[in-house]
Nucleic acid binder design. Structure first.
Lengths: 193, 193
DNA sequence: AGAAACCGTTGATATATGTCAACGGTTTTT
DNA sequence: AAAAACCGTTGACATATATCAACGGTTTCT
């Protein structure tokens, strides 16, 4: 089960992982299975673990006063489920993370991750590159949200996230884009003409 | 002029900077002055430098087909002006960064920064923490943009960014929030009642 | 196998926000 | 000192998107 994680880490670094490093990684990341609809993180709890998704699909969302869910992230294989603000600051999360499909994770605490970063250069390297990639992706999404119409946002999203479109129902995609499912339905209908 | 930068870096780390490290930093970061309205980065150019703002105020924005500017970032003292996607990937930027007030910067290339990260642990540490803080801030902004009405977004912004409100005109704040200046004007009027 | 939940779509209508034009008061430029 | 550019506001109107309700077709549960 840890092979996918090892492969994932390796891909970020030119330094190959030693056998000892691989063993340490395997010993540190704990497998965890979550059935569909179960929570990985609940609003109000501190996010204690980051989870690498080996198999499955998850979503992260907040719920407003009216009970409406707002999807902030969608995750599939090779993504990390985590509320960084909560796990870093040790504050209660405003988000929920739950499984959209039955999901297999490899989980790790923040303290363990800091330890691994210290012991394994490739991990430190991976984190740095992930942060960088993350900053870029966030910047793009923000920019798109501020500047573009719903239609253009959907087109951009569809162009770059084909796997998500296939894997999650439309109403989740709509919420991720900050629009209602009805609006997305109308946009798509119009787009095909 | 470099004292403010040294102080800024120190604040991120418990390791104090040695005299040699301070000298290296001072030698690497080049002072640069930019007059109001001048560009630090122009759309289409590769972002060659990151700039630490010692004094002044800047803005980062894209321009759409209709010629409308969309502010994605506002910067004042102790902020970093940079288009990370462009400087990391060496691709032409879709953004402009210009000075809103006369501004003094300390600039550094990506290669130099990587070198400093390698040589000075406190710098590596700073970058890591900045990335972390950044990820959190971006997450919040994104979440707010997706979930909240314009009015609530403005209230949240005003509550946490008093300095920006005092320093930049309303139409820039409006653009930063993804709304028009007219809408912001009406929101504010209503809010005071 | 039947019931229930889920999903996407459509219509009618409501609401938030954008667009355009104009104004008076500043500040900046020359 | 005059002219120009900038800034916030307001009104009238246009548009994008949300809301609410209903429907038929799936899929999921029991």
């Amino acid at each position: 089960m840890h092979e996918k994680l090892i492969a994932y880490i390796s891909q970020y670094s030119n330094l190959p992982l030693t056998t000892e490093e691989q063993a340490l990684i395997t010993a540190t990341f704990q497998p965890k299975k979550i059935r569909k609809k179960q929570y990985f993180l609940q609003e109000g709890d501190v996010c204690k673990y980051a989870g690498f998704i080996v198999k499955g699909a998850m979503r992260q969302y907040s719920v407003d006063d009216k009970g409406t869910e707002h999807i902030v992230h969608l995750f599939i294989e090779n993504y990390w489920a985590n509320d960084r603000e909560s796990s870093t600051m040790l504050t209660p999360s405003v988000y929920n993370i739950d499984a959209w499909e039955d999901t297999e994770l490899l989980i790790i605490t923040r303290a363990e991750m800091l330890y691994l970063m210290d012991k394994i250069p490739a991990i430190a390297q991976m984190i740095r590159l992930m942060d960088e990639r993350n900053a870029i992706v966030n910047q793009r999404r923000l920019s798109s949200t501020i500047s573009n119409t719903a239609e253009k946002r959907y087109e951009e999203f569809a162009a770059h996230h084909q796997q998500f479109i296939q894997r999650f129902p439309q109403h989740l995609i709509a919420s991720y884009l900050g629009i209602t499912k009805e609006t997305l339905s109308r946009i798509r209908k119009q787009g095909t003409k």
